[in-house]
Design a protein around this nucleic acid. Structure first.
Length: 481
RNA sequence: GCCCCAGUAGCUCAACUGGACAGAGCAGCGGCCUUCUAAGCCGCGGGUUGCAGGUUCGAGUCCUGCCUGGGGCGCCA
């Protein structure tokens, strides 16, 4: 295990490729805590699949077109023309303009005609408007990148709604020609009557609407085209996973079924990883439109602030830069851990006090165990002794620690099989708990040889196992705290 | 009306996929720093796993029916 070091817990490459699409924010809007769950979940599922030996493509899909964008552009042109977002927080600024647009249109419904007109101009490819759209979209993207960097969440492939709109519309035409879709325009939309096509008596897939009656595209129009594009780009995908909230379950079933009806052999490789939403106390759903949200950036900053105060209290002797780093690790780690340490089909109610609670079963507990292990090794001079066969009767806590460490590879496989980071958050806690038990019962540095050497190796292995499991959860393992 | 999800200790959640006395953390009370970092450790109290049946040697877990809460169901994303 020590020989494998950072690879311990990882499995041989399988030569199988999987794609995980997650996060999927809309440009021209803010990111709030609601986005955090899907983003963290998707990221960690990628890490787990990679450790299990899959080649993972991390995909994002940006909602860069549609009504919300037009409303934003309208408000910008009418009331903010020429303004630019502040460097520090572009996302918030973008979100504010959007929220303001919504409010203005509610107060003055007569202005909606202007938005419609703008949409028409955009649709016809007005170069000036297109240029503004691209420029402002870029601001959003830069803001997102800032937050993804903070969370340490990278992407390999970014898709845009705008690039699959035309292919989607063409696809709908094909569906009509092939008799899969029914064109009811202009009285009604274009639909795929899935239950009827499949001869199902009972309502199952219902009716899938793929194009508005006025011919404009829907999310569904674009998602069909996107699914196809993914397999054109990567024909060997063993799985195409969609990390999307549970409210869209029926919708995703409809997409998958329609693709199956169309005869795509890979339709059964599509998988919806559904997760329950994050709400505010009182079951209040977060709505970017109303602005009644906890902004992601604010949450992250507040978490770091509180963690920093705590570091100051717990370990005042650390250098200021180190305190900053520890605060960052603890704050981000805590938020990630609480988001992951919950069954995906259970809701998360966001409460400030709870989200920023660093006590108990939480990231700092595991990080602290890592710090303790590191501390022993540092005092031992950083040298890990050569292997020794234990001559003493092992203490129960030593046995427990060893068996916990040995479980990691299996836990990784289980987590990958079930797309379930919870398996690893639980295991990380067990590992840390086992180390703390050992720490409290077995002296290391003061033990007699060869027990000392044996335990030192055990501590080194434990530190490695803790670091590895934290890495899988995308949580930093600090050296001190 | 049809479908999906949840219901476990006062609160927030686990439970290695059907296995041993259902476990943690918060909150409450009481202890442990002249020994490797006390963000830690030990102890105490607290449960008819929503209800009623069924399958099984064995059910929080599987089946049926209810109850409560949440969500989804042709032109939102």
């Amino acid at each position: 295990m020590l020989e494998e070091d950072a690879r311990y817990g990882h499995h041989p490459r399988r030569g199988e490729r999987v794609m995980v699409e997650f996060s999927q924010p809309n440009t021209h809007k803010a990111l709030h805590v609601g986005h955090l769950r899907g983003t963290i979940l998707g990221d960690v599922v990628c890490r787990i699949l990679d450790a299990a030996g899959y080649d993972v493509i991390r995909a994002n899909y940006l909602g860069d077109i549609g009504w919300h964008v037009m409303k934003w552009l309208w408000n910008y042109l009418k009331f903010h023309n020429g303004e630019e977002p502040p460097e520090e927080d572009k996302t918030r600024w973008m979100g504010q303009i959007y929220v303001e647009a919504t409010k203005r249109l509610e107060e003055h419904p007569e202005w909606e005609a202007e938005v419609r007109e703008l949409f028409r101009r955009w649709d016809q490819g007005d170069p000036e408007l297109r240029a503004l759209w691209e420029k402002t979209r870029q601001w959003s993207i830069e803001g997102f990148e800032q937050i993804y960097r903070l969370l340490n969440v990278p992407f390999d492939r970014v898709y845009y709604e705008s690039e699959v709109e035309e292919p989607g519309k063409r696809l709908v035409e094909t569906l009509i020609e092939r008799g899969i879709a029914v064109d009811q325009r202009p009285e009604g939309p274009v639909i795929v009557p899935l239950d009827r096509l499949l001869g199902l008596e009972k309502e199952t897939y219902r009716t899938y609407v793929v194009l508005r009656s006025d011919g404009t595209s829907l999310y569904s129009t674009k998602d069909l085209a996107l699914a196809i594009q993914k397999f054109e780009e990567y024909p060997d995908l063993a799985r195409s996973i969609y990390v999307v909230d549970v409210r869209q379950t029926l919708y995703l079933k409809q997409i998958f079924k329609t693709l199956e009806v169309m005869g795509y052999p890979w339709a059964d490789r599509l998988y919806h990883l559904a997760f329950e939403v994050v709400t505010l106390p009182g079951n209040v759903v977060l709505k970017t439109r109303e602005g009644e949200v906890v902004l992601l950036k604010e949450l992250l900053e507040e978490a770091v602030r509180r963690a920093r105060a705590l570091v100051e209290e717990k370990n005042p002797s650390l250098a200021p830069e180190v305190k900053d780093r520890v605060a960052h690790a603890v704050a981000l780690g805590s938020l990630k851990y609480t988001m992951l340490a919950r069954e995906v089909n259970r809701k998360v109610t966001f409460e400030w006090e709870r989200a920023l609670d660093f006590q108990g079963v939480a990231a700092p507990y595991i990080q602290y165990a890592h710090v303790r292990a590191n501390s022993i090794l540092r005092r031992a001079g950083g040298q890990i002794p050569d292997p020794v066969t234990p001559t003493h009767e092992l203490h129960a806590t030593e046995v427990d620690l060893i068996s916990q460490m040995a479980l990691l590879p299996d836990k990784v496989l289980q987590a990958a099989r079930e797309f379930k980071p919870l398996v690893l958050t639980n295991h990380a806690y067990e590992l840390a708990r086992a180390f703390n038990d050992f720490y409290n019962t077995c002296p290391v540095l003061q033990a007699e040889e060869p027990i000392r050497s044996f335990r030192l190796r055990l501590v080194a292995a434990a530190r490695q196992a803790l670091a590895n499991v934290l890495a899988l959860l995308n949580i930093e393992a600090p050296e001190v705290m």
